[in-house]
């Protein structure tokens, strides 16, 4: 890669997207569906993080919790309360599903902030699978629980009659845009933050600007820590909102 840049002869090296390249961990070759890649490594590390936090951290089952145990309990209570408040009491059965998504996204986001790491959640393929999973399961739950009366979600009975078909069209479009925005929001946020950090890092090649760019990276990094959590929270809470629509489609 370096030779390429030299051949181009540009002074600064801008490769903000190179950090997102999927490459095999061992040896080289085509990336097949079962190849062990950096995706595998960092997803595996996020599983390890989840296990450390929620299984090893709580293994002492203390009545008065240690630090790691109280963090695990905090995460549990946070997601549980979110499911209960936003999606309703009857959605508590889907709590492990939402907890899985939330913990995976939080751990992957924070692991992505480790320098030289690979951010799995910045890939649209990853977030789209999760968003489509949410979309399909929520739609199926809606039809399973309510049959065809689930479609009354799109027929807003509180609106005046002439407006209803227009509103129904808008509602249907917004319903099908849901998985798109749901997935692109997370991937876009992660990708944008990391790319911006890389761009600022490239500016550090010029000695005069270097201190400024280090400061900028520090500031963006702090923002990214916030964004990492908020995006996981938003993903989980939107899942709860969609779940509420499926469980209570009548406005």
């Amino acid at each position: 890669m370096a030779s390429e840049v030299n051949s181009e002869g540009t002074g600064l090296e801008f490769h903000p997207m190179d950090q997102f390249i999927v490459k095999p961990l061992f040896g080289d070759g085509p990336v097949l569906w079962y190849t062990v890649t950096n995706v595998t490594l960092w997803m595996g590390l996020s599983v390890v993080a989840v296990v450390l936090l929620l299984v090893i951290g709580t293994s002492r089952r203390a009545i008065v919790p240690s630090r790691s145990q109280s963090i695990g309990e905090l995460a549990y209570g946070f997601v549980y309360k979110m499911v209960e408040d936003v999606a309703g009491k009857d959605a508590v059965g889907y709590f492990p599903y939402i907890m899985t998504l939330f913990m995976f996204i939080v751990c992957a986001n924070f692991l992505g902030l480790v320098p030289m790491s690979f951010t799995t959640t910045s890939h649209i393929a990853v977030t789209a699978v999760m968003a489509m999973g949410v979309f399909l399961s929520v739609t199926l739950i809606g039809f399973f629980k309510h049959g065809f009366s689930f479609l009354s979600l799109f027929w807003i009975s509180s609106a005046p009659l002439p407006l209803r078909p227009v509103l129904a069209l808008i509602e249907i479009i917004s319903y099908f845009v849901r998985p798109v925005s749901h997935s692109i929001r997370l991937a876009g946020n992660m990708m944008a933050g990391h790319a911006v950090i890389k761009v600022f890092a490239a500016f550090a090649g010029i000695a005069v600007i270097a201190p400024l760019s280090v400061l900028a990276i520090t500031a963006i990094y702090a923002l990214e820590i916030l964004v990492s959590f908020i995006q996981a929270y938003v993903f989980a809470i939107l899942t709860c909102v969609y779940l509420k629509d499926a469980l209570h489609p009548h406005h």
Binding site: S181, I184, R185, N189, A192, Y233, V234, I237, L238, V241
Partner: peptide, 12 residues
């Protein structure tokens, strides 16, 4: 936060 998410999605 839901409102922020919706507003931000369009920027994204």
């Amino acid at each position: 936060f839901i409102g922020i998410a919706f507003a931000e999605a369009l920027g994204i």
